[in-house]
Amino acid sequence: MKCWVCFRQAKGFGHVDLRFKVGHPKRYPIDWIFCSLRCQACFHRLYAVGVRYLEREGQLPTGADVIDPSDAELTAMQQCLKPLGEAASEIGMDRALSSYTQQEALALINAVVTTYVEAMVQEHERSKYPPVRMQLDAPPMN
Rank of each mutant, 00 (worst) to 15 (best):
D17Y: 01
E73V: 08
M77N: 09
M93R: 08
C80Y: 13
R52W: 00
P25S: 01
I67K: 10
V22H: 00
D68W: 07
L60K: 10
S70T: 15
P83Y: 06
L84H: 14
G63Q: 09
V16L: 09
Q59P: 00
V22F: 00
C35M: 04
Y47Q: 06
H24W: 05
L37Q: 15
D94P: 07
Q40K: 10
F20C: 07
G85S: 04
P69W: 05
L74Q: 15
G58N: 06
Q78N: 09
F20S: 11
R95S: 14
E73G: 00
L46E: 11
L84Q: 08
P83H: 08
L84W: 10
V51F: 04
K82I: 12
K26H: 08
P69H: 05
T75W: 12
P29C: 02
R38W: 10
T75M: 14
L46K: 14
C39S: 11
E73K: 04
L60C: 12
F34A: 01
Q40E: 11
V51W: 03
T75S: 13
I33H: 12
L18M: 09
K21M: 10
G50V: 00
A88D: 04
S36E: 04
C80R: 09
A87I: 04
T62Q: 07
A88R: 15
M77R: 12
C35Q: 00
I30A: 00
R95F: 15
Y47A: 03
I91C: 02
Y47R: 10
A87Q: 11
G63P: 06
D71G: 14
V66G: 03
A87F: 08
A72K: 14
E55Q: 13
M77T: 11
A76C: 08
A76G: 02
E90N: 10
P29G: 04
Q78W: 09
R45A: 01
I91M: 04
L74A: 05
A87N: 11
H24M: 06
L81Y: 10
M77E: 01
D68L: 14
H44M: 13
D31H: 04
H44W: 15
A76L: 08
W32Y: 14
F43G: 00
S36G: 03
C39K: 12
E55A: 04
R38A: 14
G50D: 01
R38S: 05
I33R: 09
I33C: 05
D94S: 13
E73M: 07
C80F: 06
P25N: 02
R95V: 15
E90T: 11
C35A: 02
L46S: 11
I33A: 02
R52C: 01
A76Y: 05
R52T: 03
E55Y: 01
V66K: 12
Q79M: 07
R38M: 11
L74W: 07
E73L: 02
L18C: 07
P69F: 13
Q59E: 11
V51N: 01
T62F: 10
G23H: 00
W32M: 04
Q59Y: 06
I67L: 08
R38E: 15
K21C: 05
V49N: 06
R19Q: 14
R27T: 01
K26Y: 02
V22N: 09
P69L: 10
L46N: 12
I67R: 12
Q40H: 01
